[in-house]
Design a protein around this nucleic acid. Structure first.
Lengths: 329, 329
DNA sequence: GCCGTCGATGTTGACGTCAACATCGCGCGT
DNA sequence: ACGCGCGATGTTGACGTCAACATCGACGGC
């Protein structure tokens, strides 16, 4: 900055004013300074700015593995929303779900130059690790837990699961089986409970639940058990990736989809439309979740506006070819 | 820091020494300072540190959409590798591929607190935008272009495409068709050229290429044309997602895989093993690509070690059920 | 012509940290 | 008993920026 000031023949303060588009700078001076900045390749030093202003214009995002489709899409949406709002993104990976890994991620974050944090890991994990974030640091949790003091943003899991289950019941299935996500996930928990409640509301029996871990491999493994059971005519799967594994298990067993078994997924990942058959699924609007969580966090940062109602972004049922009335007996 | 010093009854300098595990601090003093830090919830201010030390211990990663499987996995690997090396990750999304978007991303980055940059967008885009990075900023490009002054790290596209093509030829197919990635991608370009060269090396005719944009939807669309052509008995697809779309198109046309048509993908995404049939594909070791690019960048940062040979991480053919000898005629 | 006003620009200091240098005191060798 | 060396700790200043205050000059009203 001093160099620019010298070249332009002004003081550092004037350079600062130009860099920040402050008023009260003569047009000729401004042009001269701009030219000097360009000539010297001047870039404001963000560390000094942050030190001076006390804000970083940066938000931390804590993630655990980018394997799951939903997390990835949400991260993408968060990054875009934050950029639009003038915030940088500080990505903090948690290497595994052990207590020490989570704790050390939080410690790292405490030292990071961030004004606030969005947590993209399933909050059960946090419980177990018993970690606390640095106080006074604004936080938003993208999850479906109601157990936190922090603002929460997520898709409306309850509504989505109900949509899926009722769609299958309306097609005439006696009941709907469930291939759920990992018990450590609040989102999975919500979907499972809502599925169960929907069945009860309609007076149907609730079959045992099979659990996966979101991966298609786990869906395949649980799917083999489901495929082997002739009573199963309709399955609500907690995400599309596991649904893919289930489809494979059904094929291997020679059970046709949707003629013998109907399958509904959750997420509407881009590939779901091209599964065979194309998958009926519950669409989550990840961009909206990302946008809303950034909005909530920035509100917190700017206003100290800590307590506000959880945001539940609605989902939508996308009907394709993997669902049909049950086979005539 | 001043508060901690007061509580512990020492000078700020001693607090600094304790915070940085410097030698020559009395054990009793150290404990006292540690206690004070805990009591006050002291966190070193990273902006001040960065300002003082002139380094940020942070690297920027420029990405364009996290839709593609490979980019996502590589980003994950980069984040983990960087964390292990003590670097934070600054994620800089490029909103679209227009020149202005790319330029503004680079500008933002120039102001970011980063010691170096990893570029995860396909470099053709950079060409078109005609942008230059701030000088003196270490850069690594994860791509297969040879056109850059920057160190390059990527999977060995050439070898992977040859593996796939030769596998199909060895099964007895007369030739191999290709469903390629977007022409704007160097990686897609490399795969296409290597496929073509392999066919020529074996004295086979080179069929026309179909292009997609990495998405399964584009694979489906191009796939319909391929499925309609009875001459097609073997297809090498430039990624797994498009291969999924092709599989769907083949089903719709009533052509069996692998009995009528063999298909090989590229990436080995987790889902590929559960496609129907399970997909033969070329496995990329994304973790290795991520790790190597972080290593290269840190070497550049620390040593000013700018020019070093491109890194080509080997790939591996994973044979599953989507490939078989051609149908007897 | 004098003074008040206001816009343009300059000067100073502080943000939190840490390297460099300064100081202090203890123990040991002679 | 004296001085030297060394380990422990303190003091100072600088990193780059920008708010607050200071200054300077031009212009208008009387």
């Amino acid at each position: 900055m001093a160099d620019v000031a010298r070249v332009a023949g002004v003081s550092g303060q004037t350079v600062s004013r130009v860099a920040n588009d402050r008023l009260n700078v003569d047009a000729a001076t401004r042009d001269r300074v701009r030219a000097a900045m360009r000539e010297l390749g001047y870039r404001p030093n963000s560390a000094a700015r942050a030190l001076r202003n006390g804000v970083y214009r940066s938000i931390g995002v804590i993630v655990f593995e980018l394997h799951s489709y939903g997390t990835t899409r949400t991260l993408d949406a968060i990054a875009i929303a934050a950029t639009n709002r003038g915030y940088a993104i500080n990505l903090v990976p948690v290497l595994d779900v052990s207590q020490s890994a989570v704790t050390s991620a939080f410690d790292r974050l405490g030292e990071q130059a961030v004004d606030g944090v969005i947590i993209l890991i399933e909050a059960h994990t946090l419980d177990e690790a018993g970690v606390r974030l640095p106080e006074r640091l604004p936080v938003v949790v993208v999850d479906s837990s109601a157990h936190y003091d922090y603002p929460i943003v997520d898709s409306d899991q309850r509504q989505g699961a109900r949509l899926a289950t009722e769609h299958l019941l309306e097609l005439g299935h006696q009941t709907v089986w469930h291939l759920g996500g990992p018990p450590t996930s609040f989102a999975a928990d919500r979907r499972r409970r809502s599925w169960e409640q929907t069945l009860l509301d309609h007076g149907r029996k609730v079959p045992p639940v099979f659990d996966g871990d979101w991966t298609s491999t786990s869906g395949y493994e649980a799917g083999r058990a489901l495929a082997a059971n002739d009573e199963v005519t309709a399955v609500f799967v907690a995400n599309d990736q596991m649904a893919l594994g289930l489809l494979r298990a059904l094929y291997e067993r020679g059970r046709a989809v949707p003629d013998d078994v109907s399958v509904v997924g959750f997420d509407d990942m881009e590939e779901a439309a091209h599964f065979w058959p194309p998958l009926t699924t519950v669409r989550q609007t990840f961009t909206e979740v990302g946008r809303r969580s950034v909005d909530a966090l920035i509100a917190e940062i700017q206003a100290g506006d800590h307590r506000h109602a959880p945001v539940a972004v609605p989902t939508e049922l996308v009907i394709r070819k993997s669902t049909a009335p049950p086979p005539a007996r």
